[in-house]
Amino acid sequence: MSLLFVADIHLCQQESAITTGFIHFLHTRALKADALYILGDLFEVWIGDDDPNPLYQDIALALKVLNQRGIPCYFINGNRDFLLSSRYATACAMTLLPEQQVLQLDRQRVVILHGDVLCTDDKAYQSFRRMVHQRWLKQLFLYLPLSLRLLIADRIRANSQRANVGKTDNIMDVNQQAVMAVMTYTGASVMIHGHTHQPAIHTMDMDNCHYRAVLGSWHQQGSAIKIDAAGVTLVEFPFCS
């Protein structure tokens, strides 16, 4: 068994090297896995499954080919692409998962999630998250013309970047009590998440038998977590290796 987990690729038309690197990853490393899990923020921004952006079509084709080769792909929404829904998932032949999923791997329970819900010290972000995840607001947004949706998304992203300038690293990182609460509730011995862009594998304080594996972003290189017979491994690699 070999499972791959990625997150925070942040694909967009302005970053062609990242797109090329991710497609190369799908054609090489991902083909050697038994399954691929994408834990959110596959795209830098997502304004609806009806967006005809050619980039989205290219990624859908690459993911569908992966499925045709017998490697299933699973997706958990991130904070950037929380509006990605069943229409696009079907085009990719990937399975949508809830925001928190437990995998039973032999005797090991693994909980996977994007990770933004763990950053509970960032009160402003959590308040914003609760607001934009309201069903009525998401439906209202998706009724708007694409051009207006893109304008709103760009404005929100710019405001977020300005707000983050004044936040400390501690505020933007996960809260340990929130992590422990999820681990205890799910009975998992391993947690895998992204969002914080701080790749590492942390040994939990409880008994040194629990681990929190954090995925890196794909700004300058690829990042993945691999689970196989050797255990849980953080893998980082150049885009075209």
Rank of each mutant, 00 (worst) to 15 (best):
C209D: 11
H197V: 10
I225Q: 01
T196E: 07
Y211K: 11
A213S: 08
R212Y: 06
R212A: 04
G222N: 07
H202M: 10
I225L: 04
Q198H: 14
K226C: 13
Q220K: 11
P199V: 06
Y211R: 13
M206Q: 09
D207C: 10
G222D: 08
Q220E: 13
M204F: 13
C209T: 14
T196P: 12
H210G: 07
C209K: 13
G194T: 01
I225D: 01
V214R: 02
G216K: 00
Q198A: 12
I227Y: 03
K226P: 06
G216Y: 00
A200T: 13
I201W: 07
H219K: 15
N208A: 13
I227D: 00
V214T: 08
H197D: 09
Q198I: 11
M204G: 08
N208K: 13
T196L: 10
D228K: 08
A200D: 10
D205G: 11
S217Y: 03
D207R: 08
Y211F: 15
S217M: 03
M206T: 12
H210W: 10
P199R: 02
T196I: 14
H197W: 09
G222M: 05
G222L: 07
V214Y: 01
G216A: 02
A224R: 02
H219F: 15
W218R: 01
T196D: 05
G194K: 01
N208W: 10
M206R: 09
K226M: 12
D228M: 11
G216W: 00
A224L: 11
D207W: 12
Y211D: 07
I227M: 13
G216Q: 00
D207E: 14
H202C: 12
H195D: 06
H219Q: 15
H202Q: 15
H219D: 14
I201C: 04
M206K: 11
I227V: 14
C209F: 10
H202N: 11
I201H: 04
